[in-house]
Amino acid sequence: MKRLVAKHPLAIRWFHWLNFPVLALMIWSGLWIYWANDVYRLGWGRTTVLKFFPTSFYQAFHMDHKLAQGMSWHFVLMWVFALNGLAYVAYTLISGEWRYLLPTRHSFAEAWQVLLHDLGVRKAPLPARKFNGAQQIAYTAVILMGAGSLLTGLAIYKPTQLAGLTALLGGYEWARLEHFALTIGYVLFFLVHIAQVVRAGWNNFRAMVAGFEVVDVPEAGPTAPAAPVSSPTAPLA
């Protein structure tokens, strides 16, 4: 028999779906700003292996000559991103959701098993929990990255007024590099996260949209008691 099992509270879903487009637009507007001084590359000395980003990239997506527009959008969205993040952290603390998200001393060992499972090396099923060890580490890391982006962003936005913060982060150039590195981290997280959502299937995606997932519950036999369900459930027609 199939049942609906509650998984994600409404608040968590709102914070998630608000943060996704806001962060995506911040990255987009950040590229408009980065165009004006695109100095970062991978390489050594005069040798460049990879440049972020070639001129053709800006021209193809019409990102060139939009510095003022990019700064306007970035600074407006910054407050939405910050307030949404603070509200999310406050909610997890007050509601107790942090207990599911915060890594434990077993999370790193479990994350390795999750990786082996995703690569098809480990055949045993993953723990039947709301978040496994890999997810706990990844989601906690994203929260810390958000705090880092806010601090480094403020440091390069107001380097004179917030001179102490800028100095603490290593100076303006280091703060800007740290801000850029965090942005690359978000992009990598997006790619992995979306790939995992596709791999997990519709049931997992629906849980973040509607708040519930459909699970198979064994029907009780003529003499055996019904299997207990830990979460509030409702029969599915």
Rank of each mutant, 00 (worst) to 15 (best):
K7A: 09
W32P: 00
L154P: 04
Q161C: 00
H8S: 03
I184M: 15
T104H: 10
F131I: 00
I156F: 10
A128G: 00
R199Y: 14
Q113F: 07
V215G: 01
A200S: 12
D64R: 11
L154D: 06
L31R: 08
A124E: 15
Y34A: 04
L169Q: 08
K158Y: 13
P9L: 10
Y186H: 11
L101P: 00
Q196P: 00
V121T: 11
A128Q: 14
S149H: 12
T183F: 11
T92E: 06
F190G: 03
K130L: 06
T140L: 13
K158T: 01
T104E: 05
F180K: 02
L115F: 13
M208S: 11
N19H: 11
V229L: 12
Y58R: 03
W79I: 03
T166R: 12
T104C: 03
R206K: 15
P222E: 15
F212Q: 06
K66F: 09
G171C: 05
V198S: 02
S29I: 04
G148Q: 10
L93P: 03
L165E: 10
Q196W: 11
L67T: 06
R41C: 01
F81G: 00
F190M: 11
L188P: 01
Y186C: 10
A90T: 10
L101C: 02
A210N: 02
A90Q: 03
Q136T: 02
L154I: 08
F53K: 02
T104A: 04
F212V: 06
K66V: 05
K130N: 08
V214T: 14
G120E: 09
Y34T: 01
P127N: 13
A141M: 12
A195K: 10
R206S: 08
L67V: 02
N37C: 00
L67N: 07
A210D: 06
V198R: 09
A36M: 09
S95D: 10
T47I: 08
K130W: 11
E173W: 07
A6L: 13
L151C: 06
V89R: 04
T152P: 05
K51C: 00
V22F: 12
G211L: 09
P21C: 08
P54C: 05
I33P: 04
R13S: 07
T152G: 06
A90Y: 13
W17V: 01
Y88A: 04
H193S: 05
V121C: 04
R122P: 03
Q135V: 04
P103Y: 14
G96W: 15
P54K: 09
D216R: 10
A128M: 04
E173M: 06
V76C: 02
Y34Q: 02
S107A: 11
G201N: 07
A207Q: 09
L168S: 14
D216I: 00
R99E: 04
F108N: 03
G164L: 13
E97C: 02
T223C: 00
A87T: 08
H62S: 08
M145K: 04
V22M: 06
L86I: 14
V39D: 07
L182A: 13
W98R: 07
P103F: 14
W35Y: 14
F15T: 01
H8N: 12
W79D: 01
N204W: 10
M26E: 07
V76R: 12
G171A: 05
Y91K: 06
G70T: 11
V114F: 09
R122G: 01
L50I: 14
A82N: 01
